[in-house]
């Protein structure tokens, strides 16, 4: 284990913890971006360069922007406020997560240490190496995923499309008014 590994581990865990504990949704989102970026760095180290770039572009870029956009849209930055109806849920969740981690760690302990400098067959995880696989054995899977992505796009559009409602004021307008009133005070 090198110093790099240790550093990345600390970064990953710290950013992940921040992402699940921070009260402010925007902050939590930013912590998640940090987590994703650290993960991309780890990918580079694990000879998955293409994946690392995709992680940065798609996850840290597109997906997280979407998240932040929705947070902003719904004025949801102040998340997890107000009365918690299930206050005992937090310790229970911690306990369950810990138990899960222990069980998983125990399962992984069976996986033996692999030669640290494996033969460099991965080709650095570059598109040149991945492309053959993607459009070879995995072609149909890729096509399926593409179809799914398309269907999801359609679904998302139809979900968010303003419904034909009878003279109903859009909730977010009310929300915004309330918000503005509070600011005014």
């Amino acid at each position: 284990m090198s110093a790099f590994d240790l550093l990345m581990g600390v970064l990953l865990i710290a950013s992940a913890l921040a992402a699940v504990t921070l009260k402010n949704a925007v902050h939590a989102g930013l912590a998640l971006v940090a987590n994703f970026l650290s993960l991309a760095v780890v990918y580079f180290a694990l000879e998955a360069q293409f994946l690392g770039w995709i992680q940065i572009i798609v996850y840290a870029g597109a997906v997280m922007v979407l998240f932040l956009f929705v947070i902003m849209l719904l004025f949801d930055a102040k998340a997890d406020v107000g009365l918690d109806r299930l206050p005992w849920m937090r310790p229970l969740a911690a306990a369950l997560a810990a138990a899960f981690f222990l069980a998983l760690a125990y399962a992984f302990s069976g996986v033996g240490p692999v030669n640290p400098l494996a033969d460099v067959k991965l080709g650095g995880g570059l598109p040149k190496a991945l492309g053959g696989l993607l459009y070879g054995n995995w072609l149909y899977t890729v096509l399926l995923v593409a179809a799914l992505l398309f269907a999801a796009t359609v679904a998302a559009v139809s979900l968010v499309q303003p419904q034909i409602r009878k003279a109903r004021v859009k909730p977010q307008v009310l929300e915004r008014d309330r918000e503005l009133e509070e600011v005014g005070k």
Partner: peptide, 25 residues
Amino acid sequence: YYLLLSALLFAIGLYGVLARRTAIL
């Protein structure tokens, strides 16, 4: 090491799913 790390990240995510109240979080 990275497997262990991934397990830990997964557990943290699990905690977040259960402990968070806001859908986006």
